[in-house]
């Protein structure tokens, strides 16, 4: 079974960048890393391929400046190879543009299943994967908290407002995973060494035949600091901090 995993490479959330009030943009520096959210998809894919008794996990990513650090992490976990789309004209790409690029890259492979995360950590539009599915003409199941596959069908437990639904879908299909679907492995030393020689195919918009078909119909007009909530009083518990809580609840008339 062949699985494609969409993996986003993002600025380290621990160091999310700062605001440039003049240019009204976010200034971000440093290497990109594998989005945590996508580590679950990579792990799930590896386990599914394992359970199927063979096949390949292929990564697909769109990132600026031929960034590969995040891909190397996923390759070190055990993915076989990667397709990376990098192109200056993709700067400021919205979710639909990203989906067009990812879909075109995925078409170059022949997956039984495409996995993505429910939402990315930095963009969190949560729409990219279903847009990819629509562009590829595939069914999709979002919010998977459990996935099982046999040769032709994927069975998913899909989170819902009320609990979860058991959903069945013929392959090929796009499925998005939530955190907690599996526990991502840490790359082993051997994995890290092996990842260095795995293939990362670099592609441009022209390579994908998308030249001239991408236009972003939205623009950022302003980036500003939100009105911050102020920190209030901080007390050290000396055995009676609960009294302070009760006083406040009393004052707010909730008790």
């Amino acid at each position: 079974m062949n699985v494609v995993v969409c993996v986003k490479q993002i600025p380290d959330p621990a160091n999310p960048g700062r605001l440039d009030p003049e240019a009204k943009t976010l200034v971000r520096q440093g290497k990109l890393i594998l989005d945590d959210s996508d580590a679950y998809g990579v792990e799930m894919a590896l386990q599914l391929v394992d359970a199927a008794g063979g096949g390949e996990v292929t990564l697909v990513s769109m990132a600026p400046h031929n960034e590969v650090s995040g891909l190397r992490t996923a390759l070190a976990m055990g993915a076989s190879k990667a397709l990376l789309v990098s192109d200056d004209q993709l700067q400021g790409a919205d979710a639909l543009t990203t989906a067009k690029v990812l879909a075109a890259a995925i078409r170059r492979t022949d997956p039984d299943l495409v996995l993505a995360a429910t939402e990315s950590t930095d963009g969190y539009t949560g729409t990219t994967p279903v847009q990819v599915a629509e562009l590829l003409g595939l069914p999709s199941v979002t919010f998977a908290k459990r996935i099982e596959c046999d040769g032709s069908t994927v069975r998913v437990e899909r989170q819902t407002e009320a609990g979860f639904d058991e959903v069945e879908c013929p392959l090929p299909a796009v499925v998005t995973v939530t955190a907690g679907v599996v526990e991502p492995r840490y790359p082993s030393f051997k994995g890290i060494m092996a990842a260095k020689s795995k293939s990362v195919e670099q592609l441009t918009v022209a390579d994908l035949g998308l030249d001239g078909s991408l236009r972003v119909g939205q623009e950022v007009t302003d980036v500003a600091a939100a009105q911050e909530r102020q920190a209030g009083e901080i007390v050290q518990d000396e055995g009676n901090a609960h009294d302070r809580i009760i006083q406040l609840l009393d004052r707010l008339k909730v008790i």
Binding site: D94, A95, L96, A99, Y124, T125, G126, T127, T128, P129, V130, Q131, A133, E134, L135, S140, T142, F143, R158, Q159, T160, E161, V216, G217, Q218
Partner: peptide, 24 residues
Amino acid sequence: PQSYDGRDIAGRLSARLDLGVLTN
């Protein structure tokens, strides 16, 4: 609504009509 099905429907519609979607 940015809900389970709301996102699926908006995403699908966006790709079907080739229209962007502003989220969150």
